[in-house]
Amino acid sequence: MTYIKPKFRHPLLQKNEVGYTKSDYEGAISTLCGGCGHDSISAGIVQACYEINLEPHRLAKLSGIGCSSKTPAYFLSNSHGFNSVHGRMPSVATGANMANRELIYLGVSGDGDSASIGMGQFVHVIRRNLNMLYIVMNNGCYGLTKGQHSATADAGSTSKEGVTNPFQAIDLVSLALELGATYVARSFSGDKSQLVPLIKAGLAHSGFALIDVVSPCVTFNNKPDSTKSYDYVRHHLEATSTIDFVPIKKAIEVEYDTERAVRLHDGSYLQLHKLAPNWDPTDRISAVNRLDEARKQGQILTGLLYVDPESKDIHTLEKTTARPLNTLREVDLCPGAEVLEGINGRFR
């Protein structure tokens, strides 16, 4: 069934700089289970978009299939959305981005959608450095089909049915680093203070930004011995840093600490308070090493792991025209009859 929220808004609700209240960034009422980590991530997306003064219609939200992929209905109802087919959101996002380079693209996927059926497209969207934020709501199981292990379930994890997973997990963050992703982060659905700035910076990043968010499935995978449960994650969380996102406008006004700040391509900044030793957010190797170290110690390393502030997205690499392709008309596109007659001449 469809839940429709009342449209009434209190007139005194605070508006952001572009004139929207926070509720303007919300969507339909979630139909996910009570306590689902995904709903916290949706709330984080709402918060982040409100705070960076994003006009909702300038963003397109896309997803595949699964519990995670349902969430775009639960945020940003003033944005166009596309719930595509299982594991294929990256290609739909690629086409959409090719058509209009000016919109912001937010893709939402799950561990089944990205690490299994959609692995091929996940890998190639990274390779093309498509300008988008790609959030994986990672709960280690297939929720919508009742709790089968997914490819990100850790070896030894036990499902609600009591089946122990014998296979090693695919770590999407390590994989993304290996593939050359230009913005890689991991977070936890229960840590909004970390997640919101990561989303803001991911939206501002020019190129492919991945946030792998551990998001416990309260119904099928929240047993204490599951590595994707609230208890386990809280006890094994290790953060690289705490970060603040400073948007372009404010960047001029705020005094930032140059040693801790990373200037993004669009002129905004990430202010980092580093917690991890031997780690530099712009050094891919140090991120890979730090991740490996954490894994050995049974920790789940969260926060910003790597960012390439000089990242060049596919339009830059391919030298696409500045105007969105979907705004071009006959006068821009059709070479006309005379040119065609010239072409005919070459086939005579």
Binding site: R88, S91, T94, G95, A96, A99, K319, N326
Partner: peptide, 27 residues
């Protein structure tokens, strides 16, 4: 600069996905 985008996809599935995404977005 190019007034077109040509993407050699990773397979035919992705190729059709891209065409759908672009068509949806008005190209």
């Amino acid at each position: 600069h190019k007034k077109f985008a040509l993407v050699q996809a990773e397979d035919e599935l992705a190729a059709m996905g891209m065409v759908i995404g672009a068509g949806w977005n008005g190209s």
